[in-house]
Design a protein around this nucleic acid. Sequence first.
RNA 1: GCCGGCAUGUCGGAAUUGGCAGACGAGACAGACUCAAAAUCUGUUAUCCGCAAGGGUGUGUGGGUUCGAGUCCCACUGCCGGCACCA
Length: 804
Amino acid sequence: MAVSFDHRAIEKKWREKWEQNPININDGKKPKYYCLDMFPYPSGNGLHVGHWRGYVISDAWSRYKLMQGHYVIHPMGWDAFGLPAENYAIKNGVHPAISTASNVKNIKKQIQDIAAIYDWDMEVNTTDPEFFKWTQWIFVKMFKEGLAYEKEFPINWCPSCKTGLANEEVVNGRCERCGAEVTKKNLRQWMLKITKYADRLLEDLDTLDWPEKVKKMQTDWIGKSYGAEVDFGIEGRDEKITVYTTRPDTLYGATFMVLSPEHELAKSLATDETREAVENYIYEASMKSNVDRMQAKEKTGVFTGTYAINPINDQKVPIWLSDYVLADYGTGAIMCVPAHDDRDFEFAKKFGLPIVQVIAKDGVEIDPLEEAYTNAEGLVINSGEWNGMESSVLKKEAPDMIEKAGKGRRTVNYKLRDWVFSRQRYWGEPIPIIHCPHCGNVPVPEEELPLLLPEVESYQPTGTGESPLAAIDEWVNCKCPVCGADAKRETNTMPQWAGSSWYFLRYVDNHNDQELVSKEKADQYLPVDMYIGGVEHAVLHLLYSRFYTKFLYDIGAVGFEEPFHKLFNQGMITGKNGIKMSKSKGNVVSPDDLVNNYGCDSLRMYELFVGPPELDAEWDDRGIDGVNRFLRRFWTLATDSVEKNVPASKAMIKERHKLTYDVTTRLEAFSLNTVISAFMEHNNALMDIAKKEGGIDIETIEVFARLLAPFAPHIAEEVWERCGHDETIFHSEWPSYDEKLMADDSIEIPVQINGKTRAVINVAKDIDKDSAIAAGREAVSDRLAGTVVKEIYVPGKIINIVVK
RNA sequence: GCCGGCAUGUCGGAAUUGGCAGACGAGACAGACUCAAAAUCUGUUAUCCGCAAGGGUGUGUGGGUUCGAGUCCCACUGCCGGCACCA
């Protein structure tokens, strides 16, 4: 009687059919929907169940959009430049291109197990010359626009990876990739002027449908602040020192000044008496690492012996040096208001410097202040003509007052720094620049791109700040494309972010050798409607991609400014006790056996059922039994019902509409775990009905299958076929629901006395207030003691009788 | 230190606008089937008192608003994430 459920046979059958007759077809009429996964690095370790999660989420969403009548762009590719392949090459002598290709092959096979509707004709690989030709082309364009420039300065240097790092790649003073302590190294670097886009990157966040958390992280990273620059004269000298402050309203309280030890005037401010101490201090500061500087328990500093003049009151204020002042933020010099800043307060206490309170705390001046009154707001005091003002008002007006008096100017500052873009490693895109002794830096002519990586004997990073490419004379030595003189190639390569900053533009036109992407295709298919990936790229990849897209918009290569309209960050799948899955921890769960034992559909369902998609979830293999049981019960119910072919009953129709409502609304809310719950709950209800009525009508089974199709595509397709359909379920419409058919004739209403439920009454759904209350009183009559003060009836929800 | 988020049974989690807390699943326990086990099916499963009917308590802690609070407000505790001397 019962048709046995053989997931292997069913999945194999449909995989082959979909291969022959793809279900996601572009007929040129359907609206497009671009659903993108963050493309993976093809690691030699393969995929674990955590990688699956994001891909299942995006595929279920893509299939839903497909059934809603969209042509879905759902591509996959490989972010294949980067250190692991290179480190593998160093260890084993295998060219990164070879190990990468074999990793891509393995992971592609694993990804195909998910049965996602990826369009493999769109596949891209960042290490493919056909692709990185355009990565280099973008760089050349940026160079021509003045956005890529060379600079020598002390950059973040990872001594383990032996390469420079961008600011975004330093986490708590450590290398984002390997965790080694980051040091400073003076290096000639290629930089990208991302700071030019700071305001646009900030303002356009408002236009994005992204998690607030990610927007906030980008906002904080860009770190825009408003304030003023104030020019302080130097006693006995013509020069000025300009400071940046966000609190110009506290200028009267500036009792000393501190310069970063790297400040250009630092050394020259020393007097004969202080010279030795000042030079020692500057030297010591230069030797400190980021981590040392961050973990400093106590402030250090040295008096230069020289005084500045506070322009607001002509007071002499001593100039000190201290490494708590950052050289590369603002002007590298600050005015210190110890009464209203913790750091200045600590410094003043330690070195016995004067403290002048200029904003009254709770309306009074406190003498002496026990601690700094920070983020001060209130009445301005000890401030000459400013006395009696509200600090919040003065804060807004002071910059203009200072500017009018010729003592400074209104200004803004950003925490965002330009992007250190060169890496001293082999396995990356060569930076297409030629250094000519006559012409300076000359870009490789666009028609000569891609500039390929040469073969090397040793992939070992040199550690000197040159990449391994520098050792290959025949590659390095070239002719200047402008004047023909002997010249040398740039030997640094690009960071891994270079390819990932724009790859999503390339999928839709991946073999175009004339343009990065054709205007027609870009207009037709881009930008990305839904982007799904982990939150770890909040300020790296996602910020860089926005910057690249804005640049490409500015040069007319694309017609939109923001690459990703909607962003969804899925949570991480961890091992037991929330420990991140890793080979070294030995807690990696591979999807391969699970697919084999339970089937792709079961694993897909469980990946979604494991918890809210945006939260981390601990993996527990046992849970997959639950969804597997559900699928098998549905299978049995469906195949039995097809055989019995019973007519639809009122209960079946009601259940069908309730299911459609629950699945659709929960799916729209991206509450994917509760979508799966809805399937289980309604399947249980249908099984009960089938027990009583001998089966379920075929239309209800069909609706169930259609709703299930984005999640468990194989079983849904098989059931659909058994219901008598020749064409794929994915070309059927997404079911709609009718709220009238969902509703019960009667409803249950709890009756409370003083907020405690004492009875539940069953009444007609459109009962009026008086009848409802009467029925409620009747139901709890034996408990009604005392005087009724109030009766509350919330239609269809609750009756509450308040008794005294 | 600053900024954000979270806290519900044994476990993962659910609960539209404040309206029966614990849906759905895992696990456990009991029963059916079986020589037996697995699988499957049926039932029970927040906690306390009670044979039961029934009643008390209960969403990190303490308070508040409300007829009514997991949900709103105030204070606190714990965990997670971001930034980290940004003047």
